[in-house]
Each structure stands twice: as structure tokens, then as C-alpha cells.
């Protein structure tokens, strides 16, 4: 059914777009609900970047921007204060991590606990590519896989094929 097919194609293409953030621009959705005043508009951009990227320590899987938990409110206020006091993003993250641990980083730093998380996708892609390579190119070539028949067998084969023709 063409309509059904169209729908499926559309769905599949949407699913492909999602990870790239093309149809789910979260930052702008959640940020628009709060009013946070800054002396410099650049600070506001950094603020939204930070509250998107930091995780609420009290809630299950919510970032600070989405969370209304009291602790998130405190953390957002602290981020705002530190931004106004000219702290860098790294300083702010370090300040919060020293209190709330690496749990709050949605983009964790590369260290001994997280190297597998960071590098396993690359590892598996290379592994997959190797497997594909092996199956696609280094298997038997088509000529090799063709079996040669002895004259006796050849005769038998033609006989069978002739029988088939007769029936038709």
C-alpha cells in the first residue's frame, strides 16, 4: 500500500534525524519557560548551555533546565552567580562536581572510569567494518565456488533437464 509505505519512510527518516537534534531542539523548548536576567547576553547563552548539560542529582535523568527540584533551583542560582562573577564553564563544572560528583555531568570527562564509554563506539565500528570487509572481500571468489562436473555427471544433468522439458 503506497500510503502505508510513505508513512513508514517518513517515520524512518524522522528517526534518523532525531539524534542530530534537527527535530528535537530541546534547549529552546525548556529554556523559554524561565526568565533569568544577566548583565551580558553572552552569559545567558552559556547559562542555558550549562543547565542543559548538567544533570539534576536528585531526579532520575533530568537535566537542571527541566528540573524543578529544590536542589536544581539552588544549582541554577549558583551557576548564575558564578557566571556573573566571571568564572569559566570549567570552573563552574568543577565546583559542582566537587560537591555532587561526576554523576551530574551528562558529558562525562574522559578518565579511567569512562574511557570505555567514550571509545567503545569507535572500537565496535572498527570491529564491524572488519567483519564486513572479511565477509565481502576475502571469502571464496565466485569462480572457485563453481563446481566442475565430470563428463559422466554432465551427461546425467542434461538427461534430467531434458526430462523436465518433456514434462512441460
Amino acid at each position: 500500500m503506497p500510503a502505508n509505505l510513505m508513512f513508514r519512510l517518513l517515520l524512518v527518516s524522522l528517526l534518523w534525524l532525531m539524534p542530530f537534534g534537527l527535530i528535537n531542539d530541546h534547549a529552546h523548548l525548556s529554556a523559554s519557560t524561565e526568565v533569568v536576567e544577566f548583565s551580558d547576553p553572552k552569559l545567558r547563552d552559556r547559562y542555558y548551555q550549562l543547565v542543559e548539560e548538567l544533570r539534576c542529582p536528585k531526579c532520575q535523568n533530568q537535566n537542571l533546565a527541566d528540573s524543578n527540584a529544590p536542589i536544581s533551583t539552588d544549582m541554577k542560582a549558583q551557576i548564575q552567580l558564578m557566571l556573573e562573577n566571571q568564572h569559566s564553564n570549567d570552573q563552574i563544572k568543577h565546583y559542582l562536581v566537587s560537591r555532587y560528583s561526576e554523576f551530574i555531568l551528562y558529558r562525562p570527562e574522559v578518565n579511567e572510569n569512562t574511557w570505555f564509554l567514550w571509545f567503545s563506539p569507535l572500537f565496535f565500528i572498527i570491529l564491524g567494518a572488519l567483519v564486513v570487509w572479511r565477509y565481502a572481500f576475502s571469502g571464496r571468489s565466485p569462480e572457485q565456488s563453481m563446481t566442475t562436473l565430470t563428463p559422466e555427471q554432465q551427461k546425467q544433468l542434461s538427461k534430467l533437464l531434458d526430462q523436465q522439458d518433456d514434462k512441460l
Partner: peptide, 12 residues
């Protein structure tokens, strides 16, 4: 104000 709680990493 929860300032000491903040420094302790208190979440509730």
C-alpha cells in the same frame, strides 16, 4: 538558605 547543604552535596 541551604548553603552548607550545597557545599556538602546534600540533595534532600
Amino acid at each position: 538558605s541551604g548553603s552548607l547543604g550545597f557545599d556538602l552535596g546534600v540533595t534532600g
